[in-house]
Simulated assay, not measured.
Amino acid sequence: MSKISRDSDIVELDGPPAYEYGEKVRSRLNIRNDGTFPGKEIGEVLVKKGDEGYVVGIGTFLQQFYIYSVDFVALGRKVGMKGREIESIEQQHDALPEQDVA
């Protein structure tokens, strides 16, 4: 039997969303169609790890998770993703140490 990962102990809605509208993000994983994306086969890859997009909507799922609607402009599709499936590109650049210019 395969090991099933469950997020049942996590309740993200206790705090604010991790990402903001318009924020540029990158997929941390390959995302496959779970049957909720029309026009694609179940199991078909919708987004590849490293693909970049923008948060265009923030909703909730099961009164537990934030779901971010991410517009992957280069792919021409919007995909709903959990916070753990994306990372901010903007925050990464902000976190880089400043360098002195000689």
Rank of each mutant, 00 (worst) to 15 (best):
R32V: 09
F37A: 05
K3M: 09
E98A: 13
N30T: 05
L96H: 04
K78G: 05
E44W: 02
L46C: 04
K78C: 04
S5H: 10
I4G: 00
Q92P: 03
F72L: 08
I89F: 04
I89N: 05
I10N: 05
D94V: 02
S27G: 03
A18L: 13
D9E: 14
L75E: 09
F72P: 08
E12P: 02
I4E: 11
G15L: 10
V25S: 05
D51S: 11
K24I: 14
A18E: 12
R77I: 15
N33W: 08
G50F: 11
G22A: 01
A95E: 08
I89W: 03
G43E: 10
E23R: 03
G76D: 15
V47Y: 05
K48S: 14
E87N: 12
D100R: 09
D51K: 04
V45F: 02
F72M: 07
F65S: 12
G80K: 13
E52K: 15
D14H: 02
L62C: 07
N30A: 06
R26L: 02
H93W: 10
G22H: 04
K3P: 01
G43M: 10
G59H: 14
P16S: 01
L13C: 00
G76I: 13
D7A: 15
Y54D: 11
K78W: 00
E90T: 14
E44A: 15
V70T: 15
G83S: 12
F37D: 03
G59Y: 11
I10Q: 03
K82Q: 12
V25G: 02
K3E: 10
I86C: 08
P38Y: 07
F61C: 09
G53S: 05
E87C: 10
R32D: 01
D100A: 09
S5L: 14
I4S: 09
Y68P: 13
Q99F: 11
R84H: 15
L62Q: 15
Y19Q: 04
Y21A: 03
F37E: 12
L62W: 02
E20W: 00
G83E: 13
K78V: 14
V47S: 01
I86N: 06
A74N: 07
D7M: 10
P16D: 05
T36Q: 07
G22T: 03
